[in-house]
Amino acid sequence: MVIKSRVIDASGFERTLTRLAHEILERNKGAETIALVGIRTRGEYLAKRLAAKLQEIEKKELRVGFLDITLYRDDLRDNPSQPILKGTDIAFDVTDKNIILIDDVLYTGRTVRAALDELVDLGRPASIQLAVLVDRGHRELPIKADFVGKNIPTSIGEEVRVLITEVDGEDAVIVVERGAN
């Protein structure tokens, strides 16, 4: 794999999450009404990390859930490799909560569209706010993040990968050529 650039390293990763946590608290005037929902796979770990930070700041347990958006994807018909279901796991009622939806990279916006559809099938949240570690542009749907770790302008031929210790053994954000392994 040819890494074109390492955009965020481990310490930058940590600082970015801390800043996102503070921004979320500021916007919502505390953690009282919020609940975190991470989009599997990487968003799940980001949600757990953010929850830990928010708890550290607010000294309060937070509700955290995970969303598997596979069943709501718009490319199931044509996708030759059938995604394995990891399951949605949201143990609380989303109705009347301010949901912070968390994903690693915001790109076309299609994943977020699927997540929004799934969330409103689970109940009627007071609001849904989107937090992403990286916004790389190239939207295909009118979707915008509320909290962005870092804006990384990219070309279509590039791919942004978020690495997380729990899955990849390190925390980093890298840019690679599309199709690299």
Partner: peptide
């Protein structure tokens, strides 16, 4: 099937798949 058991517990027991 485990994933679909979860869907059956939802208020709206239907997915657009």
């Amino acid at each position: 099937a485990t994933s679909f058991r979860e869907v059956l517990e939802r208020p709206i027991k239907k997915v657009p798949t």
